Amino acid sequence: MGQPVAFFEITSTAPEKIRAFYTELFGWSAEADPSMDGYAMVDTGAGPEAVGGGIGPSQAPGDTGVKIYVRVDDLEDRLSRAGELGADVLAPPMDLPEGYGRIAVVSDPDGNPVGLWA
């Protein structure tokens, strides 16, 4: 059985502009949360089984764009396997707030960021 896409993230140096673009284009709702440095959780309005996402400010040079997070059973195992397949670790494992699990970000062999979420 394959691993499902669990989350998407859109980061920008102009997060308000990008948030307005996506919410107006697709009818999503996304309110910036000041306690999360302006990060906005996205509700696509597609129901409880839909893949959720977030839109927020860039945290480092070159990190703007769209990335997916794939649900994995064992974060460290998948990080190791990604390395064997030519990935570099962009963000080491970190805990998400409020018990939402752990994430890490790798780059695929073409340099595209891919999030892993356990």
Rank of each mutant, 00 (worst) to 15 (best):
V89S: 00
G47H: 05
E16P: 00
M1T: 15
A60I: 03
V51A: 10
I10W: 11
E9Q: 12
I10S: 00
D110L: 12
G45A: 10
P34V: 00
A82H: 08
E49T: 15
V42C: 02
V106W: 00
F7L: 03
P97T: 08
T44V: 05
L116S: 06
T23V: 05
A46W: 13
V42N: 01
A40V: 03
T64G: 04
I68A: 12
G45D: 03
A14W: 07
P57N: 07
Q3W: 10
G111W: 12
P15L: 02
A46M: 11
M1P: 15
T64F: 08
E76K: 10
D108P: 11
A87R: 02
R19E: 08
V51E: 00
D37E: 13
G56A: 03
L25A: 15
Y22W: 15
I10T: 11
E49A: 12
E84V: 02
R71K: 15
P93F: 02
T11N: 08
V106M: 09
F7I: 03
T23A: 03
S29A: 03
D63V: 02
L116K: 06
E31L: 04
W117G: 03
S35T: 12
A6E: 08
F21K: 14
G53R: 04
A60G: 06
A40W: 02
T44L: 02
G65N: 02
D74M: 04
M94D: 00
G53S: 06
R19A: 08
V70S: 04
G111C: 06
R102D: 11
D108S: 08
I55V: 09
R19Q: 13
V72L: 04
G62F: 09
F8Y: 14
G111V: 12
E98C: 00
G2Y: 05
P109T: 11
P93W: 02
A6T: 04
F7N: 12
A91V: 15
P113Q: 07
D63S: 00
W117P: 01
M94Q: 14
G62C: 09
I10H: 12
G27V: 14
Y100W: 07
T11P: 03
V42K: 00
V66Q: 00
P61W: 07
G38K: 01
